[in-house]
Amino acid sequence: MKEVKIIRTMQQGNEMQQEASNRKLPLLVLVGPTAVGKTALSIELAKRYNAEIISGDSMQVYRGMDIGTAKIKEEEREGIVHHLIDICNPEESFSAADFQAKAKALIADIHSRGKLPFVVGGTGLYIESLCYEFRFVDHGSDDKFRAEMEKYAAQHGNEALHLKLSQVDAEAAARLHPNDTRRIIRALEVQHLTGKPYSEHQSGQERGQEKESPYNLVILGLTRDRAKLYERIEQRIDLMLEEGLVDEVRALLARELPMHAVPRQALGYKEIIAYLQGEISYERAVELLKRDTRRFAKRQLSWFRHMQGLHFVDMDQNFEEILQSIHAIIAGKFQDHLEYSTNQSFK
């Protein structure tokens, strides 16, 4: 009798947990490294699941940064609504906290119209902060201090600025590349404003801790054979250059962007800026761009491997096999909220 009671209690607990999950808004998420194939797959899934896409890419929010961010073209969207693309000027800042607030509002709005909210992108912090509701604190800003740090970096170099951070916050310095001056300056700014290390403010969001999502959540993580992924990255960069990446960067420089502006630090832009300013040759700029993009993809993969609740999908499969494996993952999660598109239902 005791065994029967225990089994019944466990079943009741599972049913209550499932009921609580069903009360949450559904959220489909697709993550993966650059060039893995997120765009084409996301369009197909959005059509089959009656979804609207929320971009989870930290660079695609900026106007005028189209080629270098592999921003989806209007004709490629096939009528699927996309959000959080082209909403900021390159001179403006846009943070993970900004993304979280805007995406949360969009999820509620999309659901209220009977559609499935679908986040697609490669910026791990942005997406994880949304999926597990990280808490962000506004520490304010000090434009004068920021300008002083930009001047210091220009005079003494990025390495010297990075050393300055390591002297007051070794943990934050260890996480940031010396060339990531925008985030280094922000870490120094927070320490300057609060008197506490930037890393200390982040301690409440330690990755790897078990977290509960406010959503009925499915996260798909795309992978490919590493050699094939790197080949796709090189092909993408060659295509970007053919489509006019250098002219796009030249147009951004003509805006006289401040030193802390995103394009000056962004992958695909800083390398071309160095070429246009005569610091390196064109060939060297392309070599660095390909090398740094491969390294970036490796860091993305590392981040996603540590994300909680992620279902990996092998993109080296046949496309129909990929779709079927994704449907097997999603099946049963969202039926209480919406039906699959009638003309593209899975068999």
Rank of each mutant, 00 (worst) to 15 (best):
residue 123 T to H: 05
residue 56 G to P: 10
residue 60 Q to G: 09
residue 126 Y to D: 00
residue 29 V to H: 09
residue 137 V to Y: 00
residue 69 T to M: 08
residue 87 I to P: 01
residue 37 G to N: 04
residue 77 R to P: 01
residue 91 E to I: 14
residue 137 V to C: 00
residue 82 H to Y: 13
residue 45 L to T: 12
residue 92 E to M: 05
residue 128 E to M: 04
residue 41 L to P: 02
residue 138 D to R: 01
residue 104 K to E: 14
residue 114 G to M: 03
residue 17 Q to K: 15
residue 34 T to E: 03
residue 89 N to M: 08
residue 132 Y to A: 02
residue 8 R to E: 11
residue 98 D to H: 10
residue 88 C to P: 00
residue 13 G to V: 15
residue 14 N to K: 15
residue 134 F to E: 01
residue 112 S to P: 06
residue 22 N to P: 05
residue 34 T to W: 04
residue 74 E to A: 07
residue 86 D to F: 04
residue 55 S to P: 05
residue 117 P to R: 13
residue 20 A to H: 12
residue 122 G to A: 10
residue 15 E to I: 13
residue 111 H to F: 09
residue 106 L to E: 09
residue 60 Q to M: 15
residue 122 G to P: 00
residue 61 V to T: 10
residue 77 R to Y: 04
residue 66 D to W: 10
residue 120 V to Q: 01
residue 9 T to W: 13
residue 33 P to W: 08
residue 17 Q to R: 15
residue 122 G to K: 06
residue 17 Q to I: 15
residue 107 I to T: 06
residue 81 V to I: 14
residue 133 E to R: 07
residue 87 I to R: 09
residue 21 S to A: 15
residue 16 M to N: 13
residue 128 E to C: 03
residue 83 H to P: 01
residue 59 M to C: 11
residue 42 S to I: 11
residue 130 L to Y: 01
residue 31 V to W: 06
residue 42 S to G: 07
residue 46 A to T: 12
residue 101 A to Y: 13
residue 53 I to T: 11
residue 88 C to A: 06
residue 104 K to T: 15
residue 87 I to S: 08
residue 56 G to F: 09
residue 23 R to G: 06
residue 95 S to I: 14
residue 56 G to V: 14
residue 83 H to G: 04
residue 97 A to V: 10
residue 94 F to W: 12
residue 13 G to Q: 15
residue 43 I to M: 05
residue 110 I to N: 01
residue 50 N to E: 09
residue 36 V to T: 12
residue 121 G to I: 07
residue 133 E to G: 00
residue 68 G to E: 02
residue 63 R to Y: 06
residue 135 R to E: 00
residue 91 E to Q: 12
residue 94 F to Y: 14
residue 118 F to W: 07
residue 16 M to C: 11
residue 91 E to Y: 06
residue 20 A to P: 01
residue 116 L to P: 00
residue 39 T to N: 03
residue 26 P to A: 05
residue 133 E to D: 05
residue 92 E to Y: 03
residue 120 V to I: 07
residue 126 Y to N: 00
residue 43 I to K: 02
residue 112 S to M: 06
residue 107 I to R: 03
residue 15 E to H: 11
residue 85 I to T: 10
residue 70 A to S: 07
residue 65 M to L: 10
residue 93 S to A: 13
residue 48 R to Q: 12
residue 63 R to K: 13
residue 55 S to H: 11
residue 125 L to E: 00
residue 126 Y to I: 09
residue 20 A to L: 15
residue 92 E to L: 07
residue 22 N to A: 14
residue 37 G to T: 07
residue 134 F to S: 02
residue 132 Y to V: 05
residue 26 P to N: 11
residue 107 I to A: 04
residue 78 E to A: 10
residue 114 G to E: 01
residue 5 K to M: 08
residue 18 Q to N: 13
residue 29 V to Y: 07
residue 101 A to E: 13
residue 42 S to E: 04
residue 126 Y to Q: 02
residue 108 A to R: 15
residue 136 F to I: 03
residue 26 P to L: 05
residue 111 H to V: 11
residue 121 G to A: 02
residue 5 K to Y: 08
residue 123 T to W: 02
residue 109 D to P: 03
residue 9 T to D: 10
residue 3 E to F: 08
residue 34 T to D: 01
residue 50 N to W: 09
residue 37 G to W: 06
residue 66 D to H: 12
residue 28 L to E: 04
residue 69 T to G: 04
residue 80 I to G: 00
residue 80 I to H: 02
residue 40 A to R: 13
residue 15 E to G: 11
